[in-house]
Design a protein around this nucleic acid. Sequence first.
DNA 1: CAATTAATCAACACTATGTCCATTAATAGA
DNA 2: TCTATTAATGGACATAGTGTTGATTAATTG
Lengths: 213, 213
Amino acid sequence: MSELNTDRRIRKTKKVIRDALTDLMEEKGFDGITVRDLTERADINRGTFYLHYRDKYDLLEQSEEEILTRLKKMQLDIKDLDIEDLYEYYLKEEPFPFVVQLFEYIQINGKFMRILMGPKGDPAFPSKLKSFLSGNMMQNLYGKANGNELNIPVDYIIAYVLSAQVGLIQQWLNSGMKESPKEIALIVLNITFMGPLQASGIISLEKIKRKSF
Amino acid sequence: MSELNTDRRIRKTKKVIRDALTDLMEEKGFDGITVRDLTERADINRGTFYLHYRDKYDLLEQSEEEILTRLKKMQLDIKDLDIEDLYEYYLKEEPFPFVVQLFEYIQINGKFMRILMGPKGDPAFPSKLKSFLSGNMMQNLYGKANGNELNIPVDYIIAYVLSAQVGLIQQWLNSGMKESPKEIALIVLNITFMGPLQASGIISLEKIKRKSF
DNA sequence: CAATTAATCAACACTATGTCCATTAATAGA
DNA sequence: TCTATTAATGGACATAGTGTTGATTAATTG
């Protein structure tokens, strides 16, 4: 409900504060920012800041929360995602719709998310993004991945995939979002399914097979 | 040379400050820490801190730098690493020695690195670690990965692999370093070579082959 | 147009910063 | 063991940021 603020002044104030946050984070990093910095940059009275946020941490949290809750809203219809469904898309060489949707939304908040996940950003945000992605895609992996021949603990598989996917998002943001959401979603699908070395053609699929298999 | 400080007092002071940094970062996150906090926790005079560090950022940077330069020292003998060499290890089911060495060193600084890369840590450290890993392992991938059938830009492959590997390191640290450096190095090798879904047995190698190939 | 409420301004006590200086204590080397 | 050196201490300083308050001004809504 905090979105549907009726008073134009509040909307305007919150906007300039958040714009100031984005810019200043890029310049000096989040923990180099003071409330003074924010209000000077936003050209508002310092007291006004405290009318809306408890402190700079509250501002950051609210800004992140807004992004994550909107992401969660688009997630509802794919709760019972199966690896076989994904496989169908892989065969059709089509990106999975949810992932396209995800990148479309990321694109909207591109600048802020790029900074948030960058070296001057919030060290907690990648974890938050991972646990969002995890909620979507990882449930049924748990079951299927047990008892694999190499005995790699499932947690490592999950950590690998989540971290890699966040890395792809970061690379996309840092390189200026040149690919369309569809294109980048297809890249994600292919690398994830084939593995990085196979998808890039560095190693052929045949070479992977090992004597022991 | 800053390591070989002859004066015992300096060594002692730096140690208690860095221990305080580690503990306080775990408790309240780096940017919640004040110099007062540090010196109270370390039980030294506040002025003493400024005898050794310019501010808390200097302390963090020196602490990270120490870890990274030591890492770089062990890296020298594997500069001309080839993907074929790695492939030999993969076939022999043996971890690559440098990676074992890497995890042995990480283990020594386990607690600090875990916190540094965690949600209360330094958002810049994962990038630093990536660029270290990149210096080692990525040069010759650039050449080989061009002109792959899927036309995935090489930067995405690299971002994927680096991010995934950092994710494995984090998972290892966060789960208490239960696997030996050899074991975790082998896990890294297998997942990287086969891809996560294949290594975990979720998808068979045969299924990956696609009509278009 | 009137009632409401957001934004401003100035002031407050408080905490942290980084830098002094004089003094004390520990250390290394002769 | 003694001495010169230098690290650590304790206290003080100006400066800057924090979060809150109360009185005042200005914008917004219905």
